[in-house]
């Protein structure tokens, strides 16, 4: 019985992993990423497991990453919003202006200073799915996550 249960859990975990991979691959093809996409990826980056947008939003708020209640799942993802999530998650308080003011504009500056984003563009830029994946990957590498 124990073996059957263990096999069942392994199969469930495998199915979830395959679903996550399929999500990332679909995301890479999207011309415009949404706040919901960023939330789903960010929950995993912050050590959680995505359980739907509402739960993900609550998780991100509880971690102080972003006040997710101010966003809808389908909102187009802006560079400034992603930068704010990254700056809060990585505690990029070394950037004086971000530490003082904490706006999206200075979050972008802080992310550029931390070499997570590259110079150019502004906080209102709309990100594609593959751009979101690349930025999250660089953040994960900078924060010491396994390559």
């Amino acid at each position: 019985m124990k073996k059957i249960l263990a096999l069942f859990f392994v199969l469930c975990a495998s199915a979830l992993a395959a679903q996550d991979i399929a999500f990332v691959n679909d995301l890479a093809k999207k011309e415009t990423a949404t706040f919901g996409d960023a939330a789903k990826l960010f929950v995993v980056a912050a050590g959680g497991q995505s359980q739907g947008f509402e739960a993900d939003a609550q998780f991100l708020e509880s971690k102080g990453i972003i006040k997710a209640s101010g966003y809808a799942e389908g909102d187009r993802l802006r560079k400034g919003t992603l930068a704010l999530m990254i700056a809060n998650h990585m505690k990029l308080g070394d950037s004086l202006m971000f530490a003082l003011i904490g706006t999206r504009r200075y979050a972008v500056t802080a992310c550029v200073a931390a070499e997570i984003m590259i110079p150019g563009g502004g906080e209102w830029d709309i990100l594609s799915g593959s751009e979101l994946i690349e930025t999250i990957r660089v953040m994960a590498e900078k924060s010491g996550g396994a390559k």
């Binding site: 999250i136 990957r137 994960a140 396994a146």
Partner: peptide, 27 residues
């Protein structure tokens, strides 16, 4: 075959005696 890795994940391959690591969030 298409291979894809998740966050904080990687796969090591042996290809004809050569070693290749596919790092996180990579396809």
């Amino acid at each position: 075959t298409l291979v894809s890795t998740g966050m904080f994940s990687s796969v090591d391959f042996n290809i004809d005696g050569h070693d290749m690591t596919v790092e996180q969030l990579t396809t």
